[in-house]
């Protein structure tokens, strides 16, 4: 490789800029000072115990987990249907249907949230975790479809034909051949939808019933300077959590490629 000292230092500087705010998380999460300011005071785990003692935070975390698990499952299932149909079959209305499914990718999220809210309000549907879930599924499904489409596309059609040729039924072929081979894609879709949902703010804020949801709760707490250190502790935990989840997703993806005997061609985005 050619040396490019200027580009290299620029890139490192860029990474530093990207990471700078995140690096503050652990620094001040373990700092005993009540105010987020240099110089650092002493080491403490106090903010973590304050975080763990926060009853509302626990409820918010539980709600977010329920939402994220439901959203990830629903959008992955809906994504499997849509991706499989679009890769495998041609049918009338395919382009407009796929366009509608992918539309939230190019719409400001606020508009999706407000349109849904207006309809829910006029139908007198009470807002709840459930309304947050159905709204978030709209946002995450395009990601699921994109990931799963590439998983189904890399599946050689003759593998399915071979299974049919060897006497399997359509369902047997799907269960024994298609499903195991797209499983890494399904896992990746689930993990990414989970992460997006867990982090999502607008729909959680407007379609939630006022029940605490983690992202909304964090947003609220940052306004109170006294609460900031324990929020930084929470942020530290969440960042570690995301990195573990992402590492796992990347591992699954590589295993999937190795399984299919393919070559690695970059990240899973």
């Amino acid at each position: 490789m050619k040396k490019a000292p200027f580009l290299r230092s620029y890139t490192l500087f860029y990474l530093l800029f990207l990471y700078a705010p995140i690096l503050l998380l652990p620094i001040f999460a373990f700092n005993s000072g009540k105010v987020v300011a240099f110089p650092l005071q002493g080491f403490t785990l106090g903010w973590f115990s304050e975080m763990l003692a926060d009853e509302n935070l626990r409820i918010a975390a539980k709600n977010s987990l329920i939402i994220a698990l439901s959203v990830a499952s629903m959008s992955t299932v809906l994504g499997v249907f849509a991706a499989r149909a679009s890769v495998r079959y041609s049918f009338p209305g395919k382009a407009p249907i796929m366009g509608l499914i992918m539309l939230p990718l190019v719409l400001p999220e606020m508009i999706v949230a407000m349109a849904l809210l207006v309809v829910l309000l006029s139908l007198n549907v009470p807002l709840s975790l459930f309304t947050v879930i159905i709204g978030q599924v709209l946002i995450t499904t395009p990601f699921a479809v994109a990931i799963l489409t590439s998983a189904f596309q890399s599946l050689d059609k003759s593998l399915e034909e071979a299974a049919m040729d060897l006497g399997e039924t359509a369902w047997g072929t799907f269960r024994l051949i298609v499903l195991p081979l797209v499983m890494p894609g399904i896992m990746a879709s689930f993990l990414i939808c989970f992460t997006i949902s867990f982090d999502e703010f607008i729909i959680s804020n407007f379609l939630g019933s006022g029940q605490p949801i983690l992202s909304v709760y964090i947003f609220g707490q940052f306004r109170f300077p006294a609460k900031v250190p324990s929020m930084l502790a929470l942020g530290t935990v969440l960042v570690c959590f995301s990195i573990i989840l992402l590492g796992f997703a990347e591992y699954m993806r590589r295993r999937g490629i190795a399984k299919a005997g393919g070559k690695d061609s970059g990240g899973f985005l």
């Binding site: 050689d156 034909e161 081979l181």
Partner: peptide, 11 residues
């Protein structure tokens, strides 16, 4: 059938 790509189940 023996397929052109052989269609060996990779898993």
């Amino acid at each position: 059938m023996v397929f052109q790509s052989y269609a060996i189940f990779p898993h």
